[in-house]
Simulated assay, not measured.
Amino acid sequence: MVTYDKPHLTYEQQLARLVERGMPYRDHAAALSSLKRTGYYRLSAYTYSFRKRDADGVVESQFVDGSSLEAAVDLHDFDVKLRATLLAGLEAFEVALRVQIAYTLGRRDKYGHLDPENALDGGFCGHPADSSDPGGRTRYDIWLTKYDKRCKDAEREDFVKHFKEKYDGRLPIWAATEVMDLGLIARLYGFLLRDDRVKISRNFGPRREPDFRAWTKSLNLLRNHCAHGDRIWNRSFTYTLPEFATGAIDSRLDHLASSPDLMRRKLYSLAAVLASVLTTVDPYSNWPRSFATQAKKLPGVPQVVTHQMMGFPSDWQELELWKYQPVARGR
């Protein structure tokens, strides 16, 4: 095992290192400011796209001709705005999923989220969370622990205090969902009885419920990356979206039917799914146009930074999905 022995570099030394490798800058003060606000290591995730590759595709330490620190910073700043746009859409999805779960499970049992044996899929809830878990906890046990912590964190909220002071402290599902984050919501969706999952999934578009379950899992992962400020624009995500079968999903996603696995791990596929579900559940949504507007601002560095690196098809701007006209709200 090799010991990491690279030395600490001052900001000036960091700039000198970039220049030495072929990444100049125009303004010294602005370059220093960029390093101080972003950090050399964090910025390296964006300068990486500018590095040369040899004939075998191996990444070298030198940057391609035409690289500049300004271009790398522009790419970083584009990613910041892209995350903000995605978070707005993911928040809308989270709220819509909360509503659907609260409404559907609430009809069955207002405390259904606390009754895994009767109101939820007991078999799935009782599945071991991890064979290595010393306590032998189930998936539901883990979920309930996280839910209880969220309730405790929210105990100063007026609606939580109301249920603690006037009733037995348990939150009915329509109140409980308000303390859950998307991760808890997505897991609770997976715990629901199949009939309830099907009712909910069809409100978001997919005819096959397992497709929607996979989408919620992937969108939750995307939300986590965005919330933690991770690089998004060219990331290959952990989960691969299921293959898209034409006729089983929104026809506006048909262009993804032939996408290879690698492309279904890229941002474009996730953004397309998010645009589809948002406009299906809320015809007033303007999110697809907001995302398309931001995506078009990808800093132009020919053959170095491209939309294809994000999984975008070449004709994406002409697709119906991104030209969606929201229904006008009545006054």
Rank of each mutant, 00 (worst) to 15 (best):
E94K: 02
E94A: 06
L97H: 04
L97C: 08
R98S: 04
R98M: 01
R98F: 01
V99M: 00
Q100S: 15
I101Y: 03
I101F: 04
I101E: 05
I101N: 08
A102P: 15
A102T: 07
Y103Q: 03
Y103K: 02
T104A: 02
L105M: 05
L105F: 02
G106R: 00
G106K: 00
R107Q: 10
R107S: 11
R108A: 14
R108Q: 12
R108K: 13
D109S: 10
D109G: 10
K110S: 10
K110P: 01
K110V: 05
K110L: 06
Y111E: 02
G112F: 00
H113F: 00
H113A: 01
H113N: 00
H113I: 00
L114R: 10
D115M: 05
P116I: 05
E117V: 14
E117Y: 06
N118F: 08
N118C: 13
N118D: 10
N118I: 07
A119E: 09
A119W: 01
L120M: 10
L120K: 02
D121G: 13
G122E: 02
G122W: 06
G123E: 05
F124S: 03
C125E: 00
G126K: 12
G126H: 07
H127R: 12
P128E: 06
P128K: 01
A129Y: 11
A129D: 05
D130S: 14
S131D: 05
S132I: 08
P134R: 05
P134H: 07
G135E: 10
G136V: 04
G136S: 10
G136I: 05
R137Q: 15
R137V: 12
R137M: 14
R137T: 13
T138D: 09
T138E: 06
R139W: 06
Y140P: 15
D141V: 01
D141H: 02
D141W: 01
I142E: 11
I142K: 09
I142N: 13
W143E: 14
L144T: 13
L144S: 15
